[in-house]
Amino acid sequence: MNLDWSVVWQNSGALAQGVLITILLTFCTMLIAIPGGIVLALMRLSSSRILSGISACFVEFFRNVPIILLIYWTFYVLPVFTDISFSPFGTGLLALALNVSAYNSETFRAGINSIRRGQTEAALALGMSHMEAMLKIILPQAARRVLPVLASTWISLFKDTSLVSVIAVGDLAHNALEIRAQSFRVLEILTAMAVIYWVLGYPQAKLVDRIYKKWGVKE
């Protein structure tokens, strides 16, 4: 069996571009899914039955549907029933953001619930509203507890973005699989792809370990 690694170098431009898209997609998804998760968690914890119900349904739906199905669904089904259609990147982003928002919401909810009731009472006793108590006192404390969990979600997300390759978003997985199809250099390209994901993912994973050490719950 002869290996020809030159195919990797020849296509380094497309691979690099794929890396950029993968990072961009991860970043944009989190940019939406963190505020999204907070809003969903606050809705879920609010005293309004309606808000709390909507949030619960949303979360339970999007958390339990496979991401790949969500991607196909947004890409093929949504435009049929509505006039809404997105670019492949937009579609991938939407599907991932829905899923990760649902996950983050549960993370934030657990974080908020882990803060002692007395903290809210101390804030209320000063005359703060529930909202002020949440924003100034509870969320900043919850954020510290939630950070390590968000960091692991980030790592999963970074790898899960590869799922959007099925709708031809030019991310790393998609570009690599294209090159493979054109060059028939299956082993070389798949190896290169694994190495690139690993080289990018490993430092992030190490960083998460450090975040856990530094910020993980100790009390």
């Binding site: 007395g118 903290q119 006793a125 000063l126």
Partner: peptide
């Protein structure tokens, strides 16, 4: 009620200082 609470100070058994 918020207005009333502003005019009362409360001190708790477990202090409940804001740790952050």
């Amino acid at each position: 009620i918020r207005q009333v609470r502003q005019r009362m100070g409360m001190v708790f058994q477990n202090f409940e200082l804001f740790p952050h």
